[in-house]
Design a protein around this nucleic acid. Structure first.
Length: 596
RNA sequence: GGCCUGGUAGCUCAGUUGGUUAGAGCGCCGCCCUGUCACGGCGGAGGUCGUGGGUUCAAGUCCCAUCCAGGUCGCCA
């Protein structure tokens, strides 16, 4: 080793020792007669002192030329700083190293930005110089947290007897779902692999193979547009179990979350996590991933709305829609007319025709104290009933949605989030509200494709007793599926899988995938299912999102060492790039570029 | 693909109604300083104002196109 200690470990007990440190020059403070250097590595910072009386004139002169981010080796003696000169903010602040010998291991140009906690740097510069950005404490903290999370998960699953198995990244193209990245085959002209969008099929095959507890920290690839929490390659903590029910998987998944929070954050999560059916979540919170850091429940008022006096509501009912509302208790003062107008525009952006609201003044019993676009038209009787149904008190603000069921759910769900997270700031930092949302519909009608499409994926098992409905009313069939939601973010999800070929065929049929097509696309799975597939199920956690939430980062890019930009480029590697004609020829590929 | 925000010194930003030589802080370079620790003092260098075109006597500023970054909708079974 070129060093005897790291820059974070020397203490008063080491005083008198001769040590050798290696690291980067964080800072140099030249006082003429004496030079201070802060030497940094990922373990910490140690102050090195160059005094000509100790190190000699030549070494001091050399130290004088040191610049930020040079890599140096320093041999010297550990000395106590004394009460007066100690730096309480530094773990090594009680000591300093009086240099005797200095070796410049590598000089460096002035970095494009300062490598310290305080420097504000834009993301573009950070990504172009990611190797420098990763030296910064914030990035180190996040990558180390990620490491601890992964280790905690691995220990947890290992202790439960899970087997870690790697599955291929080069896979077969599977239609439906996310767009695949394609990889040309040199050996098979005109044919392509697809990068795995998830290990889904492989883990089912592993269950058929009898590995009844599988786990993998798996890279997944999806060629879709990027978002603040979406990258084209990302990591899942993927697991699958045999001979289990929904409850078993949820228990294991919940246990992992508890282990991760305990080991990575030192936080003890309450058990068990609350559960809602998909239907309950959608009705009560207008979302399949409700943020439970605040209440603001949505109440159905369809029966009340008939004859309430407000024609907008009544017409929505006549059109077979619904009327629902939520009460923001005591929010009247925080929600100015201007804010409410902005919220109305926000609702319109999501698909609402408008957003009826009522502001309650000092006395809910007086008609004049009900103000807002919906207030005047409502009959006194309807108003009294409303006060009862929404538990109206002075200073409350009521919001109404009147439209199709789907629109009202979406709009009030979004309004609820906007109120809770932004306008009323009801979500406290450091608060972790977990929730299982289970039993979502198996499939959903797609106007675009004029067909029923799988909500989760086509291998998700419906509830057994609802199988007969599959042919007659596919939309009514619920699936044995579950999503783990944290503070309004989906952090994981899974399902019990179909384990027999007959049911799988029936589901394919309902999804408009004929026997021939099914055979062509998923024949290997159907074949395998016929060879003694055990009942099985599993789930996957989005590791990047998990780390993002645990670290409080604003974007997924902050918890990935080398992320892509929103257009899918790597600014540091400068890729993707064009390749030579020769390479293309070898892959039997002709490119067809869009017109310039 | 649509919409929104931004692009000015190495970094983070300001730049008024279109008008003199485009500024600040940090960083950088030089000199001084023996107890600093985001040291301090003095001095200095550093700009295709993303790119291309247009309007104008005059464009960082107005218009059009385009590129890049971020956000968002579509998309993500």
């Amino acid at each position: 080793m070129l060093r005897t200690h790291t820059c974070g470990e020397l203490r008063l007990a080491d005083v008198g020792a001769t040590v050798t440190l290696c690291g980067w020059v964080q800072n140099h403070r030249d006082h003429g007669g004496v030079i201070f250097i802060d030497l940094r590595d990922r373990y910490g910072l140690t102050q090195v002192v160059f005094d000509a009386d100790v190190c000699g004139a030549a070494a001091k002169e050399q130290a004088d030329r040191l610049r930020s981010e040079w890599v140096v080796q320093v041999e010297g003696e550990v000395r106590a700083r004394g009460e007066k000169n100690a730096n309480k903010q530094l773990a090594t602040g009680d000591i300093e190293v009086f240099a005797r010998r200095l070796t410049v291991l590598n000089p460096a140009p002035t970095p494009p930005f300062e490598i310290d906690e305080h420097a504000k740097v834009g993301e573009e510069a950070r990504l172009r110089y990611r190797f420098l950005d990763l030296r910064r404490p914030a990035m180190q903290r996040r990558l180390l947290l990620r490491h601890r999370i992964v280790q905690a998960a691995r220990r947890y699953f290992d202790a439960l007897g899970f087997v870690e198995v790697e599955t291929p990244v080069l896979c077969k193209y599977t239609p439906g779902g996310a767009r695949n990245f394609l990889v040309p085959s040199r050996l098979h002209p005109g044919q392509f692999y697809a990068l795995a969008e998830s290990p889904q099929l492989f883990k089912q095959l592993l269950m058929i193979a009898g590995y009844d507890r599988y786990v993998q920290i798996a890279k997944c690839f999806r060629d879709e547009d990027l978002r603040n929490d979406r990258q084209p390659e990302f990591t899942q903590i993927d697991l699958e179990m045999s001979f289990v029910t929904m409850d078993d998987i949820m228990e294991v998944g919940e246990g992992m979350a508890r282990a991760v929070w305990r080991e990575a954050l030192g936080v003890e999560l309450p058990a068990p996590f609350p559960r809602l059916t998909w239907q309950e979540a959608m009705d009560r919170y207008g979302s399949d991933k409700p943020d439970l850091r605040f209440a603001l429940p949505i109440v159905d008022l369809s029966d009340w709305a008939a004859g309430c006096g407000f024609s907008v509501f009544e017409k929505a009912l006549e059109a077979k829609g619904v009327v629902r509302a939520l009460n923001a208790p005591g929010a009247a003062e925080q929600l100015s007319r201007r804010t409410l107008d902005q919220l109305t525009e926000f609702a319109k952006g999501i698909g609402a025709k408008g957003l009826a609201w009522i502001k309650i003044g000092a006395d809910p019993g007086r008609a004049e104290d009900w103000q807002g676009p919906a207030a005047k038209n409502i009959t006194p009787q309807a108003r009294a009933q409303l006060a009862e149904r929404l538990q109206v008190r002075a200073g409350d603000v009521l919001f109404f949605g009147a439209d199709t069921l789907k629109t009202v759910r979406t709009v009030l769900g979004a309004v609820r989030n906007q109120l809770g997270r932004e306008l009323l700031q009801l979500a406290r930092p450091g608060e972790w509200r977990f929730l299982w949302v289970h039993s979502a519909p198996l499939c959903e009608w797609s106007e675009e494709e004029r067909a029923w499409v799988a909500n989760h994926h086509p291998f998700t098992a419906p509830y057994r007793e609802q199988l007969p409905l599959l042919a007659s009313d596919p939309g009514a069939v619920l699936s044995q599926s579950y999503d783990l939601v944290l503070n309004g973010n989906e952090i994981g999800g899974g399902s019990i899988r179909i384990h027999d070929a007959a049911t799988q065929q029936a589901v394919f049929q309902a999804l408009g995938i004929g026997p021939e097509e099914a055979q062509r696309k998923f024949g290997f799975l159907l074949h395998a299912l016929s060879y003694g597939a055990p009942p099985h199920g599993g789930m996957a956690f989005g590791l990047d999102r998990l780390v993002m939430l645990l670290s409080g980062a604003e974007s997924i890019r902050e918890v990935i060492a080398f992320p892509k930009t929103q257009r899918g480029r790597d600014e540091m590697l400068d890729c993707p790039t064009a390749v030579s004609e020769r390479q293309l020829a070898e892959l039997h590929i002709l490119t067809r570029l869009p017109p310039a």
